[in-house]
Amino acid sequence: RGQSTAAESRCTLPRKMLTLFVVLALAGGALADNCCSAEDRREVVRAWEDIWSAQFTGRRVAVAQAVFANLFASHPEAKALFKRVNVDDSDSAEFKAHCIRVVNGLDLAINLLAQPQNLDAQLDHLSKQHAARDGIKADHFHFIAKSFAEVMPQVTSCFNSDAWTRCFDRIADGIAAGLP
């Protein structure tokens, strides 16, 4: 399987350190680990499969439009970044196609969560794609992460926010890594 990734090493701490962690956790009550674990991945894939719809785009567009509406409500300045895809008319074919690409990018990453090396290669690609666009900052991915976290429970049943956030951060951090 080759070398381990940064994310894997975040998740698999050396035994000595783990013992220390257990002690600290017991002492501190709940010391939350922020890594996207195998259990988290399963939760995320399950929630995602529920709304994904592999045959039609209606739900994908509805979810992405809601996410962007949420993002622009709290960060109106971000809207200017999407001029090229006709953001002013969120029902236009150009913006809907853009929505589908965004959701597709996320779908791709979610389905690669179980293969960290392939996921890293993909996140690196997305990072470069976003770095090529003027004005996109690492922070924007934290903003859109918050929007996804607010939209997802409105559309998925039994949504596990903690698992989602840990895995979404793993993806967003990978993309944001190459951004200012």
Partner: peptide
Amino acid sequence: PEFQAHSQRVLGGLDMSIS
């Protein structure tokens, strides 16, 4: 990993088009 990620991007493009 580079080609596997590429492969999934192509399938993703195909998936968007078919859907």
